[in-house]
Amino acid sequence: MNTKVTIAGVEFKNPVMTASGTFGSGMEYSDFVDLNKLGAVVTKGVANVPWPGNPVPRVAETHGGMLNAIGLQNPGIDVFIERDIPFLKQFDTKIIVNVCGKSVEDYLEVVERLGDTDVAMLEINVSCPNVKEGAIAFGQKADCLYDITSQIKKKAKQPVIMKLSPNVTDITEMAKAAEAAGADAISLINTITGMKIDIHRRSFALANKTGGLSGPAIKPVAVRMVYQASHAVKIPVIGMGGISNAEDAIEFLLAGASAVAVGAMNFVNPYTTVEVVEGIEAYMKKYGVEDIQELIGGVQE
């Protein structure tokens, strides 16, 4: 039975990854999860300099999901290279670094700094809804996305995944723009912009007023977008949004994802990632699937 997948020449032992921002750099979950079992650890977004993030409250629970407006707090690329990469290198898993920035120059600086480190791929977050400047604008206009992708591709030493926002009219247009600009893969979905109001206090639940919705509540939207995007482009798609078990993950694979990532559900069940790995294997056994490739895009039309 083969569970290996290859994306842009990088081989992953299985298609299960962590979604950026929900797993730290692995350290916080190493009590719960044997990181060696994961296809890849995708780190929290990192910028060229430390970012303090948004004021609290930064998280709020909603029906079957949660809103967050962390604001991409991160310690900056220097600390990240000194601390987080060496930690992750101890494990037999691939490292994917999520990159954020406020300007094209910010992104390029991080991408260049990562050039001679031991990371397998870069995931470019142009889709965070929680940062006032820059960031999401790159992910909501096809021409901006094309521009930043091609600039990053010129500098990047590792294969580049562009992480797409669901907060767009036509996801296929964005997927095509990323592909045309040379992206090696795309990942989606990032969170869906939402809002929650506390009726007793008549105030916003989040200090930032709006936040990104994630968790099981967004899964059908994510599956639909992964399906549409993967049929619009030839480059591989990494699917995420509300995955809480192997069944959910298999749905994404059948929709067309070559790999999947577990996000908010890590907070609910810290063992989710390994349970998904094991559950996919059990499913393959049950249905006599020899190669995971048979599942990717395998939904009957």
Binding site: R58, V59, N68, N266, F267
Partner: peptide, 11 residues
Amino acid sequence: ACGVGACLGCV
């Protein structure tokens, strides 16, 4: 959210 230091929600 996470309670274990990963999400940076509770700073």
